[in-house]
């Protein structure tokens, strides 16, 4: 099947900074694709090029078979966009705005149904200028969906939401997937990526540093397990039992000087067995004993830190790029 989005060796250079340094990926039809990355990594620039708001310096981009740089109406008829901060005509009501934006599209969803979907029924006759922040974001979502798009861009769709509103937004986005829509999502939130995305691309300093499903991202599924516990006073690390040969034992940096221990090993089960058996035999209590895989956040932090370290100048420079992207062009 043809991909909804294809990007090959995309570069974007602003006057002073290189915001994108050779980005390539594709998004399959019906897929939820998530772009993760710190501020200034190039997410917004990349998204804006895909939406046709910005021109690439070099590289090939195809969105639903169109070149977004040409700004074709046929492409805009099939995409929906939720931008980070985007105004509306504040003197019109929710219902009027959904109706008005709906008229711009040849194929449109019923206004009533959409207002219900984003749960603004109670506010349908309220002027947009009187809505709260969360209600405005939901209106944004309704306006992005009004043309019944095949591809939806969501730029940090839940930033500033309370946990309840985020769950609701997630279930709305999930329902889009079940309709076969393709979703291109950018976010800061690991749990959002974990919850929604089929595949995640991690960006740092203008490059994709990892690409994969949330489960396997950065080889996460193959990474060693982490066992953490706290030894009682008077028991040293040297007294621990024989552990699997690959085990890396160190003082847990997260637990300070209180005797916290961190064991990393690919054989988590064997190590846990050895440790708990030893503790029972010796009558030692291992407080806070836990076995875990590294979280998506750990992987993300490791991935984005690699690029930040060693080139301390790179991060602020990239931040300037995204700040520049925010100014009206």
């Amino acid at each position: 099947m043809r991909h909804a989005i294809e990007v090959t060796d995309l570069h974007k250079r602003y006057a002073e900074v290189q915001a994108l340094r050779g980005v390539s990926f594709h998004v399959g039809a019906g897929e939820v694709f998530c772009m993760l990355g710190p501020n200034g990594a190039g997410k917004t620039t990349c998204t804006e090029i895909l939406e046709g708001h910005r021109l690439a310096s070099s590289g090939a981009v195809s969105v639903l078979g169109h070149d977004p740089a040409r700004g074709e109406r046929a492409m805009r008829e099939r995409i929906g966009v939720v931008l980070q901060s985007c105004g509306v005509q504040e003197d019109l009501t929710v219902a009027e705005l959904v109706e008005m934006y709906g008229r711009y599209y040849p194929r449109r969803r019923s206004a009533e149904e959409l207002i219900e979907l984003v749960e603004l029924d109670a506010k349908r006759d309220a002027r947009a200028g009187t809505l709260s922040g969360g209600q405005r974001r939901r209106l944004d979502l309704a306006l992005a969906l009004v043309g019944d798009p095949d591809l939806i861009f969501l730029d940090e769709p839940t930033t500033g939401f309370d946990p309840h509103a985020r769950r609701q937004a997630w279930s709305t986005i999930k329902s889009l997937c079940s309709l076969g829509k393709t979703v291109f999502l950018t976010t800061h939130y690991m749990d959002e990526a974990q919850h929604l995305a089929d595949r995640v691309a991690v960006m740092a300093a203008g490059r994709i540093v990892a690409l994969g499903s949330p489960q396997e991202l950065g080889g996460r599924d193959a990474l060693p397990s982490e066992i953490r516990f706290t030894l009682p006073e008077g028991v040293g690390v040297g007294e621990l039992p024989q552990l699997p040969p690959d085990a890396d034992v160190q003082l847990d940096p997260d637990r300070g000087t209180g005797g916290g221990v961190l064991v990393r090993t690919a054989e988590g089960v064997a190590a846990a067995h050895a440790l708990t058996g030893w503790a029972l035999e010796r009558g030692i209590e291992l407080r806070g004993f836990s076995v875990a895989q590294p979280t998506l956040e750990d992987v993300y932090l490791a991935l984005t830190a690699q690029d930040g370290e060693g080139s301390a100048g790179a991060q602020p420079a990239a931040a300037v790029a995204e700040a520049g992207a925010g100014t009206p062009g």
Partner: peptide, 18 residues
């Protein structure tokens, strides 16, 4: 001025409305 500074123009540009 409102169209530009409030980002309405940006939203509009993403729609098929010329």
């Amino acid at each position: 001025a409102l169209l530009r500074s409030e980002g309405i123009l940006k939203r509009l540009k993403a729609t098929p409305m010329p």
